[in-house]
Lab assay of single mutants.
Amino acid sequence: SSQSQGISSSSTSTMPNSSQSSHSSSGTLSSLETVSTQELYSIPEDQEPEDQEPEEPTPAPWARLWALQDGFANLECVNDNYWFGRDKSCEYCFDEPLLKRTDKYRTYSKKHFRIFREVGPKNSYIAYIEDHSGNGTFVNTELVGKGKRRPLNNNSEIALSLSRNKVFVFFDLTVDDQSVYPKALRDEYIMSKTLGSGACGEVKLAFERKTCKKVAIKIISKRKFAIGSAREADPALNVETEIEILKKLNHPCIIKIKNFFDAEDYYIVLELMEGGELFDKVVGNKRLKEATCKLYFYQMLLAVQYLHENGIIHRDLKPENVLLSSQEEDCLIKITDFGHSKILGETSLMRTLCGTPTYLAPEVLVSVGTAGYNRAVDCWSLGVILFICLSGYPPFSEHRTQVSLKDQITSGKYNFIPEVWAEVSEKALDLVKKLLVVDPKARFTTEEALRHPWLQDEDMKRKFQDLLSEENESTALPQVLAQPSTSRKRPREGEAEGAETTKRPAVCAAVL
């Protein structure tokens, strides 16, 4: 046999249950609850290399294929790409003598399909299967379609040439079993990697079954959420508030809700932002270029202005709740996480202390139980975000031990490091100062900020419009641009040419 590394010779191994799959997660993409704000000051410096380099560890398999027929071997997927077919160049070659004697062998292509993985959001991997055969590759009886790919989820059954000719079961060793999710959700989405997690739940990458488009699904544990919100009269209202707010909003710089499922837990389906959180971008770069800050901040102002015009105060604006559309420097941003939002009543007064301390406005800290506050709290938070983006460190921090965090904020005395700000323009610093004003009545509004000289930049605004146009074009394009080929190089076993392929839609398939 010419099988590559990772293939075992026996096809009769006992199949494990899916609970053996491991679970991976990374930083929070968007969480309903406010958790302790991640610290920006503690960015690790590059460490000196050791005298002796450690040995390379043996790579762990990321997936496993269990053979369902004699003549096929099990495969431990270690590499990122595997070709399957009769050709000797394939990493998994159909060359077992037992297999060659079967009637089905002649229906398999020289290069029938490939399984591979690509880097997705949060640097996690996504597994795909890609059909290159004349007679078809099927996943859970659905045709992939020649020249098309679809994501592979845990426990997928792979069939060759005929939908009933099941050859492998695919085990993704990095994700959960699909069966743990409600059927209504599974009918519409293929669940994938964990993108982030918080005290009350997690955010998962998923794929729409009909279109193969990526989405983010925010899962909120009702049990954990009820415990964490025990002081509230009705904890469920917080989730329902977020859903109702998101459904009503329609702005290019605000995250869109696509679906909602109320089962044992809450499942909020949101558009996916491939670039992750602004927080991670700031930490990764230490600070952002001023031109990049301007492009992002302009969009934040437009989003918050839209919220305020619609009578909504976000109340928890922070870099973790600003998501980026891509890994590119120039990209769209979207505001997310409306769990603490407040729809303005007639009095415009709110007395609930919520939000993240580092970003809270002075009037929030001094008015607990005594007075109210209004939309100006969001403008203060925007000032803190702009400060961080321009400088790479927070204006107020618990680690300045000589003054408490509350006193720093209520006095408006931010930590100004001259040598850092020497590289920032006077106009940018002036806008920061106009937003970090203790008196909410004297603080800049979103309208005033948008009129500030720093943002009178036609090149930046043109760039934003171009990015918007690109997004609109990409969302308007159909996901499947061509029909699967019906040509046949070899006959199917026991049926006429093209008899099955043309009847089945290529579900969740995307043209390369």
Rank of each mutant, 00 (worst) to 15 (best):
D316S: 01
N259V: 05
I254V: 15
D265L: 07
D459H: 11
L386A: 10
N472I: 13
E271V: 11
N285T: 08
K342L: 03
T370Q: 10
A510T: 08
G372L: 11
L386F: 13
E244Q: 15
W421L: 08
N321T: 03
I335R: 02
A361I: 01
Y373H: 05
C253V: 04
L450T: 06
V364K: 13
T370I: 13
K248M: 08
Y267I: 14
N285A: 08
P319C: 01
L317F: 05
E448L: 15
K318L: 01
E346G: 14
P319H: 01
D407C: 09
A496W: 08
L481G: 03
P319A: 13
L317G: 01
T358D: 04
H340P: 04
W421M: 03
Q327L: 05
N250M: 05
G494R: 12
K342W: 03
F279R: 03
L288C: 07
K334Q: 03
T475N: 02
E271C: 14
L382S: 09
E448P: 04
E346S: 08
G311E: 02
G498R: 15
I255G: 08
E309I: 05
V507R: 10
A510S: 07
L431V: 08
D330W: 12
G276W: 02
D466Y: 11
M350H: 00
S341A: 15
A371K: 09
L270N: 03
F260S: 07
A428G: 11
M300K: 07
V322D: 02
L353D: 01
R400K: 10
V283S: 10
V480F: 12
G339V: 02
L301V: 11
C389L: 05
M273E: 14
V269R: 01
R287K: 08
K433F: 15
F297M: 14
E447K: 06
L324K: 01
L249R: 06
N321Q: 03
P453L: 11
L317W: 08
P362H: 03
R287M: 10
L477Y: 13
S325F: 14
M273K: 15
E426G: 11
R351K: 09
F260E: 12
I257Q: 05
G383A: 00
T352M: 02
E500C: 15
D265G: 09
Q299H: 05
P418L: 05
E419D: 10
H452Q: 02
E447P: 11
D457A: 14
S381E: 12
L317V: 10
S474R: 07
F260L: 08
V377K: 01
K318C: 00
G383V: 00
N415D: 11
Y359F: 11
V368R: 11
L467N: 13
G345W: 15
F279N: 04
L360C: 09
V364R: 15
I417L: 14
E264Q: 04
N310R: 12
K318G: 01
A291Q: 08
G498Y: 13
I255C: 14
S425L: 01
V507Q: 15
A476S: 02
K248E: 07
L349D: 14
D337Q: 01
N310I: 15
G275L: 03
C508P: 12
L353A: 12
S341P: 02
Y414V: 00
H251S: 08
M350V: 06
T336H: 00
L450S: 04
F261W: 12
G275A: 12
Q305M: 00
Q483Y: 07
C508H: 12
E274I: 09
V424D: 02
E290W: 08
D265N: 12
S341F: 04
K427G: 15
E398T: 00
E426Y: 12
N374A: 08
E363A: 00
C379W: 13
I335S: 01
E497K: 08
G284I: 05
D407Y: 07
D316H: 04
P357Y: 12
Y359Q: 01
V368P: 03
F338R: 00
P319V: 13
G284V: 09
Q305Y: 12
E448Y: 00
G372K: 04
Q483C: 03
D378P: 01
N321G: 01
K281G: 02
C331T: 03
S326E: 07
K294M: 15
L431C: 13
K427S: 14
V368A: 08
